[in-house]
Design a protein around this nucleic acid. Sequence first.
DNA 1: TATTAGCACTCTATGTTGGAGAGTGCTAAC
DNA 2: GTTAGCACTCTCCAACATAGAGTGCTAATA
Lengths: 352, 352
Amino acid sequence: MERDIFDILDERSRRVLNAVVRSYIDRPDPVGSRFVTRKYSFGFSSATIRNIMSDLEEMGFLSQPHTSAGRVPTDKGYRFYVDSLSNEAQSEKIIEVPEEFIQQFSRRLDEFKNDISAMFSEVTNTLSSLSNYVSIVLPPKAENTTFNRIDLIKFKSDQIVAILLTDEGIIHNKVIQADPMLKQEDLNRIADFLNVEFSGHTLDEINNMLMQRMKREKAQWDRLISRAISIYEQAMTFAEGDIFVSGLYDLMDLPEFSDISKLRELSKAIKEKHVIMKLLAELSHSEGVQVLIGTENPVTELKGLSVITSMYKEGSRPMGIIALIGPTRMDYSKAIIMVDTITKCVSRTFED
Amino acid sequence: MERDIFDILDERSRRVLNAVVRSYIDRPDPVGSRFVTRKYSFGFSSATIRNIMSDLEEMGFLSQPHTSAGRVPTDKGYRFYVDSLSNEAQSEKIIEVPEEFIQQFSRRLDEFKNDISAMFSEVTNTLSSLSNYVSIVLPPKAENTTFNRIDLIKFKSDQIVAILLTDEGIIHNKVIQADPMLKQEDLNRIADFLNVEFSGHTLDEINNMLMQRMKREKAQWDRLISRAISIYEQAMTFAEGDIFVSGLYDLMDLPEFSDISKLRELSKAIKEKHVIMKLLAELSHSEGVQVLIGTENPVTELKGLSVITSMYKEGSRPMGIIALIGPTRMDYSKAIIMVDTITKCVSRTFED
DNA sequence: TATTAGCACTCTATGTTGGAGAGTGCTAAC
DNA sequence: GTTAGCACTCTCCAACATAGAGTGCTAATA
């Protein structure tokens, strides 16, 4: 499939296409044939370029806003550009991120090790201010984190505060209703029990295996333990974790958002967290940096935008997602590298 | 001072001024003399109204975008309108909020009693979607909340998780570094000590009085207690609480924001939380609903906007602030009542 | 056969012009 | 004190003209 595209276009067409895309990314004016010849010195006249561009349009890589305007890349055109980017990258002149930046940023993240949400805020802020696009971080899904311990504290007569610690240092707390008869000692016993049973397992395992087993065997256990199950289940129904977003306002400067309505849609989509979360989760099944361009995007609200995602991990276990959303006319080479670099820094931080 | 204004303007001028303001709030077109006579049937011809409006302009209540346009209220004009609103309110036809809404909203808030941030999100969302302006909630300042208990949990070898509960149901947690030699039992003793000493005091009192006293008397206490002080101090340095914001995007629909640059400034100001927080804190020293109109506003970023604030309380103790930010051409009567009502609902929720 | 120069054509962006309309301020009459 | 009448001002909008950029096509060229 990809090979096809590279076969259909000869060397020359490919260079012209990439030149048009690059130029358009640089400044959002339709690109004319004369401009291409002048700026990127091919050995051909504008008439020849004109023919090539006409062919590229017929093949769907470029389009004209109107007769006698220059050409603008289509989503397909951007797709070709992005694909050839990663080809180039493998072979030659990829932009290198200065090792110094990586060092410095990693050190910065280390400072936030004790406060994971502050760390994620730092990540989105950095990413959006470097790129001027919208950056999003999804924190690790609860199911992927490892149970460290739970504590139960009696709070007012009929309430319990449940505090769950994970190995990753993520703390969930929740006030739950409970039988007023339960004393702090009872709670301690319940917590001890859960800690012994669950320690070292991921929350996912706990939900799927352990809890099932315990429920089956419930009859054998005393009343306190059946309470433990109920309490744990209540404590575990936390609201879907917050997502970290930054940079929505930087988009306002881009000419494609002078309209505002796109921006509204995006902000709405972000507010409806689950839309974004689902998309990003699906996107990130595969390895490395993923790019979705314009209409490739399954979410209607984002059809006019491009999304770049990557997954950060602890060792080999996937944890969460880092994403960058911008106009289709996005500086892909820069954006991809930034997402990639930042993701690696975050992964590294989780490793030690 | 206020009396002055009411003295300067005779009954008729006041009525005309209020008519112009109301009309302009209704639709953002400069208001002409003819329009005033037709819409608000005074017993005078347009020529008379013209003279009055001319006087009002000279006095600074109205202004003309250009010769031969209608008139537009100045900030001073809005101020007069708002002041006469509250006068009216005391005497007669204030818009009543249906008791049913209050009941319903209060019940809704009760559902969130166990999750205070969810509750504040609900408040901002409701307020902004009712008003179509930006709503902001400042959560209770930490210093104003009452210590309920602290728990210290050993986590990894050199880290402690400190969990602080307040009577208001607000939970702070923080991972702090600590001497690896400290065992869980030691932590329990430290926590017990702090709980006995601090329980029932506000964090403010604790910082000011108790901690000072303890430090002075430190010599008399054993080593563990001096550790307790250090741990408590670390645990207490939490990041300034989040502020809850909603409705920035609804503003985009208003004609005065077609420009976008105002919106950018506002969003920047909100991002710089402390700017907003300081303003709101200062504003809300006094009782009831406060209104700042346009240039009355000390914060430059908000000079073109109006701010309405009110304070929610637990009994008589001030807790946090609810605010609404919109254009100077804001529907003050509606906005003031909404802020007032919602504030009362929140206060009520904290009371029981 | 591939490339290119030349040219007619198309479409946008910009500036100009000329009412129409809304509103004012002033004056003189009531 | 109030109002009718009128000249004046300013904006808004549509109609029109023009410059400029870019295209597609054709015929000449290497």
